[in-house]
Design a protein around this nucleic acid. Structure first.
Lengths: 187, 187
DNA sequence: AGATATGCTTAATATATCTTAAGTTTTCTT
DNA sequence: AAGAAAACTTAAGATATATTAAGCATATCT
């Protein structure tokens, strides 16, 4: 069975007919390493599920400094939620860390499916509730822990990603320079 | 009309009977300045809406350092969402910045109401989606902006709170010491 | 009103982190 | 396989932020 249905099955159980409708509204996309599926500054009207592979979301600020905002490993839902919900230009770029297979649903079909299938409305309510919690815990970590503690947290939280990302990307996720992270690791 | 219904009315419209059911499941609570409605380490099984007044959520780390995680002004929904959803001990304390009037709903009644009234499931889906966006933007700010820029953002984002909170609390929201914030302001 | 606690500011010194630059290793491209 | 590009490390000097401590102002308590 596809991972996406296992994922949805964690919080709700769909009838066969509902699952079929849902599936018909997704498109399956294969992307190569380094391909972008969201481009900062452009529109973003797709919500994605990572069936296999992994992604990194980053933001370039006005000085050209790159910040890694999040990672999306296998089994995650991901998009630039701000752009997706509000129709504003994307603040993020989303880049494949490796060859990946994803499911994508447009904003229009997302609205349709949560309207037609109340159980999916529930599913996404729980999903966003958990996403909110996750981000809030990250804010807490960011303002109350040392860089070293946050680095150890990262290693613990994303053990499978560690081999797929560069030091530079980890540093930009932690909000420090690669040089500083390098000197931290020496200890 | 009570603010809470105006707030809900932003995203859905309730029938009279639904509004009556909803209202019957909330309790109205009046709290005095400095009272805590959530205590770090204890259970937190209530979701609150701030009808009037304002709150500050903070976390004490193992060294006793206090970090302000969020502010909840009038017209906001607030709780320790992690504790509320997962039943784990609260990581936050939530303190009234002034005399406040709030609506509170228990986890049990929350589950009941999103089950009985699908429109409220939608309401909370949208609410959490927006909360997730807000936290993600804050993470972006925190790792990509300077302290000075984040201070100016705070003043801009919460103009009405500025008079109600101390410098120390703003500093702990930004993740810097009060002394450093004080020297920033001199410029 | 007086006493006490709390908050704000300032300054000196200490620590964390950045910037720049160079050298080395790894990965990508042809 | 060779060359080019990107990543990683190291170190010196610069900047941002923390720590400590003192003094003053403001709020709180009796």
């Amino acid at each position: 069975m596809e991972l996406i249905f296992k994922n949805i099955g964690k919080y709700i159980s769909l009838e066969k007919s509902e699952a079929d409708l849902l599936l018909s509204l997704f498109q399956i996309i294969t992307v190569l390493k380094k391909e972008l599926i969201i481009n900062q500054g452009r529109n973003c009207d797709m919500l994605f599920f990572v069936e296999s592979g992994s992604f990194r979301a980053y933001h370039l600020n006005k000085d050209g400094k790159e910040s890694t905002i999040m990672f999306a490993p296998e089994d995650w839902w991901v998009t630039d939620m701000n752009a997706f919900l509000n129709g504003t230009p994307s603040l993020l770029s989303l880049e494949a860390l490796e060859e990946s297979k994803i499911y994508g649903i447009s904003r229009k079909n997302f609205d349709l499916v949560v309207d037609k299938i109340p159980k999916l409305e529930r599913f996404f309510r729980i999903l966003f509730q958990r996403a909110y919690i996750r981000e809030q815990l990250r804010v807490m970590d960011t303002i109350s822990l040392t860089t070293e503690e946050r680095y150890l947290n990262f290693l613990h939280k994303y053990p499978n990603l560690v081999q797929k990302v560069t030091q530079k990307q980890i540093a930009s996720y932690l909000g420090v320079t690669p040089e500083f992270l390098s000197s931290l690791k020496k200890k």
